[in-house]
Design a protein around this nucleic acid. Sequence first.
RNA 1: CGGGAUGUAGCGUAGCCUGGUAUCGCGCCAGCAUGGGGUGCUGGAGGUCGUGGGUUCAAAUCCCGCCAUCCCGACCA
Length: 491
Amino acid sequence: MSQEFTSRDKDYSKWYNDIVEKADLAEHSAVRGCMVIKPYGYSIWEKMQQALDKMFKDTGHVNAYFPLFIPKSFFSKEASHVEGFAKECAIVTHYRLKNDENGNGVIVDPDAKLEEELIIRPTSETIIWNTYKGWIQSYRDLPLLINQWANVVRWEMRTRLFLRTAEFLWQEGHTAHATAEEAIVETEKMLNVYADFVENWMALPVLKGVKTPNERFAGAIETYCIEALMQDGKALQAGTSHFLGQNFAKAFDVKFAAKDGKLDHVWATSWGVSTRLMGALIMAHSDDQGLVVPPKLAPLHVVIVPIYKTDEQLKQISDVAAGIKKNLEAKGLSVKYDDRDHLRPGFKFAEYEFKGVPVRIAIGGRDIENGTVEVARRDTKTKETVKQTELIAKVEQLMVDIQQNLYKQALDRRTAGTHKADTYDDFKRILDNKGGFIYAHWDGTAETEQKIKEETKATIRCIPLDNKQEEGNCIYSGKPSKQRVVFARAY
RNA sequence: CGGGAUGUAGCGUAGCCUGGUAUCGCGCCAGCAUGGGGUGCUGGAGGUCGUGGGUUCAAAUCCCGCCAUCCCGACCA
């Protein structure tokens, strides 16, 4: 396992892949475009799920589960929705295999063709709204606030572990409301939940905004998003929340009787985050020594490594370590004592560094004599000697400090990576130099947005929610503009 | 889905041009020493050469199909 990471400067893509692989997060599977999430990676995802799930419950949502398969006909009910997903659907056409008579192994039984093909969900709006039709009759049935944790499939041409895979894990919230205002409040509320999660748990600052019509979810009236900046200057959409208006209610004929007896279609939202957040987490904090995980999402908070020469010394150290482990665990921290005898301490140090464990405690013969331990933190890679009596409080404080420091570092990086451009030349120069978020005036037309995308590969990431109004001229067309929007090259 | 590259032990590779069943390193197993930043020595196990077909006395090597991965484009959470 003696291995070096490719540095970020040398090859950012390779650095990312190295971390995913060497930190044991995931690997490619035998199936094209699909990954195996390994236990260490999955335990980070589980932490994310737990935190998000609690936030959903705290805001009044409940979990349910809808089928993986969606009848093909459901898709054609909402025109723009079909159009958005048609090109990337996996389709089930048969339900049986049989042995080939010519001895070519198993083949699809041509007699077992489905009357109506089933689409493997790329998202669940259609099956859910078909179901909601039976659940909603009266304003008393509203709001309906449901979330599901599920896998979805989008047949991607080019995939990258966590960032874009053919199958991925996510949650999708689907809510129904009596009024447009209430649905918009819900859409914004869930956007704030996502922003809160990404900033406070993942320690990653995000921009909240709305998408341009071009970038909007297929079937939505308005798409809200959170956008984060990665270390290579590319943006990553970390979550979206959609105001769907009455589009799906109309498509699936979901009406409710108001107090006054009038029938109206209900108002909808949907919102989701996916295992893509793992990609964001990796690229947000990790360095050339490997993964860095914020304490709030770390599967393992502290590792204790003994340094010893004799069995007797090991026993003394193990006794001390057991006490420390017990006391740290009593504080809710997850702790591992690594007394594997065939590996040297230095090897273990490196191993836990590339897995991103926030704090390492080393205990040696000298420490036993002095009543101390050596404490090293992953984020700054600094070490200090701490008295055993002060250790528990010290480690608890470190968890807070590391979480904050990671956020601050990410925020500083984003600040340094955020620019303004007033001319198209400037705009292109910034993109080619360092990338990042670029605030620039835009004339509001899809044509300009498209041209800029074709010429520079930069897209409008969002129009920030609390955007400053400011007179200016579009960097591309020169036409008047009332505000700057955020451009970037994106994942 | 187009262009390019690659596929040999768990991983990384040599061999391929000029056919004769395979090289080296890491890892793994055993033992001894070592132990405050990726340990050393000794011995050992492990391979349908991605896959299917063809040429040949003989194929990792030559030819064709397929699959997968990586890079570059079009598409996208």
